[in-house]
Amino acid sequence: MIKKTPVIIFLFIMIMHSIVISAEGFRYAEIFDPKQDKVVKVIQVNREIQNMVVSWIKDVDNIYGKSNPLTDDGYAIRIPLYPSVKVQGKCINALINEVYIIIPENEPAFFMIFENENKLLCYPFRGDIDALSKILDFKLKVSKVYSKE
């Protein structure tokens, strides 16, 4: 009984002085390859990546015109934004916490953005795919016709 008392007191003190850990620490971008049907690379999102993506989103000025934008080739890149970004522009008026950049092999690239948590809209991607490829340290293979607009 005497040996159990210090152990119980020690455990009680540990529980009372535990450290709260936040799960919001790191955010990761994911590059998904539909041909392989898996995430092929995970990258920690840094301020440079976030600023680049946010600047591209703020430049959106029209809706993506294709009726069925999904493809089974190319890449899909999911980039979480933290903190969430409020965008008020010509076509977007939403608080955005996640952006998908879809880069088909033989079609123009586009953004998929969920507005108001359930409304999905697609917008043309006017960013530099080569710069995105470099910052993600991943070679995004796309048609030369659609690599820059």
Rank of each mutant, 00 (worst) to 15 (best):
M1L: 11
M1N: 13
M1S: 14
I2L: 08
T5M: 00
P6G: 06
V7H: 02
I8W: 00
I9W: 04
L11F: 12
L11Y: 08
L11R: 08
F12V: 14
F12R: 08
M14G: 15
I15T: 13
H17Y: 14
S18I: 11
I19F: 02
I21T: 06
S22G: 03
S22N: 01
E24G: 07
E24C: 05
F26E: 11
R27A: 05
A29G: 03
A29S: 11
E30H: 07
P34D: 06
K35Y: 01
Q36S: 09
V39E: 04
V39K: 01
K41M: 00
V42C: 12
V42T: 15
I43D: 11
Q44F: 05
V45C: 04
N46W: 05
R47T: 15
I49W: 06
I49N: 01
Q50M: 11
V53K: 12
V54S: 01
W56Y: 15
D61Y: 04
I63L: 11
K66C: 13
S67Y: 13
N68C: 10
L70C: 10
T71R: 15
D73M: 06
G74A: 03
G74T: 07
G74K: 02
Y75P: 10
Y75I: 08
I77K: 04
I77C: 07
R78N: 01
I79F: 01
I79V: 04
P80K: 00
P80Q: 02
P80R: 02
L81Q: 04
Y82G: 01
Y82F: 02
P83S: 00
P83A: 01
V85I: 04
K86W: 08
K86Y: 06
G89S: 03
C91Y: 03
C91H: 00
I92G: 00
A94W: 08
L95P: 07
N97R: 02
E98H: 07
Y100Q: 06
I101E: 00
I102E: 11
P104R: 01
E105M: 10
N106C: 05
E107I: 07
E107K: 14
E107G: 11
F110H: 15
F110S: 08
F110L: 11
F111M: 01
M112Q: 15
I113S: 10
I113V: 15
I113G: 10
F114H: 08
N116Q: 12
N116C: 08
E117I: 14
E117R: 15
E117F: 13
K119F: 10
K119S: 06
L120T: 09
L121N: 10
C122M: 15
Y123N: 07
Y123R: 06
P124D: 04
P124F: 00
F125W: 02
R126M: 10
R126F: 07
G127H: 09
G127K: 08
G127F: 10
G127R: 08
G127L: 04
I129R: 08
I129H: 06
A131Y: 12
K134V: 09
K134Y: 05
L136T: 12
F138L: 06
F138K: 10
K139S: 11
K139E: 13
K141C: 13
K144T: 14
V145S: 06
S147C: 12
S147I: 15
E149R: 15
